[in-house]
Design a protein around this nucleic acid. Structure first.
Lengths: 259, 259
DNA sequence: CCGATTGGTAACAATAATGAACCGACCTTG
DNA sequence: CAAGGTCGGTTCATTATTGTTACCAATCGG
C-alpha cells in the first residue's frame, strides 16, 4: 500500500532534482529512466514545467535544462528571507581562519544540497561540488541535519535510503547510521572521518530554523593528513560558534538538547 | 471559452508567481483568492510545493513563502548556462556611462520579470523594483519582447491581457499596442514615453536566444526631464551595441528582421 | 459574546493523469 | 543498406487523481 502515491505535481517537481551542475542537460528518455516514470508522464511534466519557465529545451538537441523562473524565485526568496547570503560570509571566514574548505548545506525538500562554499587561500584543499545533493548517511552535514530532524520527517526520509558505500568508512546499515546520529546528538557536532571521500574528514554542525527544526548545516571538509588534534579542536570551536551565530541571525531556535 | 483548463502542475507552479519582494508572504485563503483556485485545491498544491522545498510555511503565522529549492535550481542554471551574470555587468556599464537606470528583463514562463538592475552613481534616478513582473503593454521591455515573439506564443500571451492604464500615455487597446509593436519592429528598439510611470521614459532592446526567440530585454529607464535628444541618441546607440553583444554572448541569434 | 475570518479536513462525482502500443526520424552496426 | 537500437513525441481506453461542497476548530475584532 505504501507503494507509490505521489501526486502529479510531486512528480513534476521531483524531475527538477535530477539536474545538477554535473548533469546540466537531460533528454526525455534519460529523465524518464532516472525517475522511473513513464515516458509520456515525464513528457507531460516537462512540457508543463517548460510552459512555466522552470525548464527550457535546447532547440537543436531537444534536451532540457533548468529555466529562468527559478532565478526569479530565488531572488524573491533571498530579498525577503535571506539565507544563502547570510551563511556565505561565515563560510569565507571559516575557510580563511581554519585553512580548510567550509561549505553550507541547506535542506531542500527532502535532500541536503550544498548551497555555498568557502575555500581557503592555499594550494591544496578539499573540493566540494557546488549545488549538488549530498547523501544523508555518508556526509557530516547529512548526519548533522538528520540527527535533529523531527521524528515524522526522519522516518519518511530515512525509510528509502540507499546507504551506498562511498569509502571503507561509510556507514552501510541502519545500526551504524544510528550510531552516527547518536554521537552527533551527544556532542552537538557530527564527525565524518573519510565516510564520503578518502583523505577528507568532515565536521558539521546543524543550523536551526524558527521551529527548532534543522534547516541545514555548515561543515568543514578538512584534508585528513594535516588534521592535527589542535586543528580539530579549532574546527569544533569555530563551528560551534558560527553555527550558533547563523542560527540566531536567521531567527532560528536551538532545540533544548543543545545548550 | 475563456474557461481555461489548466493542468494541475500548471496550477501549482503558477501559484509561485504570486510571491514577490513586495508580497513575500501569503496565506492560504489569500493565495486562493489571487489565483481564483478553490481553497482545497490551493492547499493541496501548496503542500506539494512544500514537500519539495519550493515553499515553506511560517510556523506561527501559517503563511507561505518561497522555499530553498529554487536557490539550488537557480545556481545549477547559472553555473551551466549563465544568463543573469552575463547581463549584469552590461547593465552596470550602461548605468554608469549613461547616468540613468539600466535594467534587464527576462522572459520567465509567460511573463517578463526584472532580473537585474544597474543604477547610476547620482542622487536622482529611476527606481526599478527588482524581481517583479512587468506588464507587457506598458513597459519598453515588454513591448520589445512582444514585438519579436513567435506568433503562437504571442497569441496565447496577448490574448488575456489586461491593458490597465498606469499613466495617461499607457496604450489601453489592441490598436495602440499593435502600433507600439510595429514601431519597435521598424526601429529595432522600443520606446515607452511615460507609459508605465510618469516622469520616466523607457527605451528597450530585445535579447535573443538560440532559436531567434526573444528571451528578454535590456532597457534604460531615464528621467524624462533630463532626457535631451543627445542623451536619447546615446541611449539608443549604447542599447543597440549592448543588446547585440549580450545576444551574442549568450549564443543567441538575431532574427533576420534586425540587421 | 458574536459573526467573520483564518487554516485544514472528509467524502464523493467528475475530470484529468496514466501507460501500453505506436510513429517517424535519427543513429550505429553488421 | 537494411536491421536493430535509440531518440522525442502522439494516441486513446482505463483508472486514479482531482475539484467541489460541506463541515470543523481556532482566531480575530468589536
Amino acid at each position: 500500500m505504501a507503494k507509490t502515491m505521489m501526486g502529479t505535481v510531486d512528480k513534476a517537481l521531483s524531475l527538477l532534482r535530477f539536474f545538477s551542475p554535473q548533469r546540466a542537460e537531460l533528454g526525455l528518455s534519460e529523465l524518464a529512466r532516472l525517475s522511473t516514470f513513464d515516458k509520456t508522464t515525464t513528457l507531460r511534466c516537462m512540457t508543463a514545467l517548460e510552459r512555466n519557465g522552470f525548464v527550457e529545451q535546447d532547440v537543436l538537441s531537444r534536451k532540457y535544462r533548468i529555466g529562468l523562473t527559478p532565478l526569479n524565485l530565488a531572488q524573491v526568496r533571498e530579498q525577503s528571507f535571506p539565507v544563502q547570503s547570510v551563511i556565505a560570509p561565515y563560510l569565507d571566514d571559516l575557510a580563511n581562519t581554519l585553512g580548510e574548505t567550509a561549505h553550507g548545506t541547506l535542506l531542500m525538500g527532502q535532500t541536503p544540497v550544498t548551497a555555498a562554499i568557502g575555500e581557503p587561500d592555499r594550494a591544496l584543499f578539499a573540493h566540494v561540488h557546488p549545488s549538488t545533493a549530498l547523501p544523508w548517511h555518508a556526509t557530516a552535514s547529512g548526519v548533522a541535519i538528520a540527527a535533529y530532524l523531527p521524528d515524522d520527517m526522519a522516518e519518511t526520509v530515512l525509510a528509502h535510503q540507499e546507504m551506498t558505500a562511498f569509502t571503507a568508512n561509510t556507514p552501510i546499515n541502519r545500526t551504524q547510521f544510528a550510531q552516527a546520529l547518536a554521537a552527533c546528538r551527544a556532542e552537538g557536532l557530527s564527525r565524518a572521518p573519510a565516510t564520503f571521500e578518502d583523505e577528507i574528514t568532515g565536521t558539521a554542525i546543524p543550523i536551526f530554523g524558527p521551529a527548532t527544526h534543522p534547516i541545514g548545516a555548515i561543515a568543514i571538509a578538512a584534508v585528513t593528513l594535516r588534521l592535527t588534534p589542535e586543528l580539530q579542536a579549532q574546527i569544533d570551536a569555530a563551528l560551534r560558534r558560527a553555527g550558533k551565530e547563523i542560527t540566531q541571525a536567521l531567527g532560528g531556535i536551538h532545540p533544548q538538547a543543545m545548550t
